[in-house]
């Protein structure tokens, strides 16, 4: 059998087809990687650029995550920074307000266990891991109102952890922001 010339030719043909397919497969994979890199270059969603830490035990005592500093702040460059804390079983602020068509940086962390932070119908989607600060850069094109659930199991009350976000007209937002340093849409 081993010396059957037909067998050897067959084996060679098979190997050739196989090599061709391997090359195609490698091509497909290379294309995928290039696409991922291209999207990265062109400012699609990118992972947060830095690792930062925060002590969940003392978030409420000092630092940028004390309750009076949570919410949306207008930066000198016109962008908006939103600070939020996730805890069993709510986000604070539980209603976030941001202007439309404005660069937004969300900075959030967890006060106890791992939570998820997701804004439906958007690409805002991250994990809040206690001990670390999550940052997300985003922008909402038009005014809208969306839900903001926790998407990671965080204990027996996880199913009740739904926040909301309101994207409002930029001019309205800036007018409101003029007399309040931190904005939320929490009903007081």
């Amino acid at each position: 059998m081993t010396y059957d010339p037909g067998h050897i030719t067959g084996a060679m043909v098979a190997a050739r087809i196989e090599r061709r397919w391997t090359a195609i497969s490698i091509g497909i994979i290379a294309l995928l990687i290039v696409m991922a890199a291209y999207a990265g270059i062109h400012q699609a969603v990118m992972p947060q650029p830095r690792v930062e830490t925060a002590d969940p035990r003392t978030l409420h005592i000092a630092g940028e995550f004390i309750e009076s500093n949570l919410g949306s702040a207008v930066e000198p460059d016109g962008s908006v920074t939103v600070r939020a804390v996730g805890q069993q079983y709510s986000f604070t602020p539980q209603c976030i307000v941001v202007p439309a068509d404005t660069p937004i940086t969300i900075r959030a962390t967890s006060a106890d266990v791992v939570h998820g932070f997701l804004i439906e119908h958007s690409n805002v989607n991250t994990m809040l891991v206690p001990g670390y600060i999550s940052t997300i850069a985003t922008r909402f094109a038009t005014p809208s109102e969306r839900v903001m659930p926790c998407h990671e199991f965080c204990g027996a009350g996880h199913e009740g952890m739904w926040g909301r976000i309101k994207v409002i007209d930029k001019a309205t937002f800036m007018k409101l922001a003029a007399d309040r340093r931190r904005m939320t849409c929490v009903a007081q």
Partner: peptide, 22 residues
């Protein structure tokens, strides 16, 4: 590596007392 981001704005303090129990 853990990096601290330069703080842009001062932290807003509450005009009421909040708990400082850890």
């Amino acid at each position: 590596l853990v990096r601290a981001v330069p703080v842009a704005e001062p932290v807003v303090q509450a005009n009421y007392k909040t708990t400082n129990v850890n």
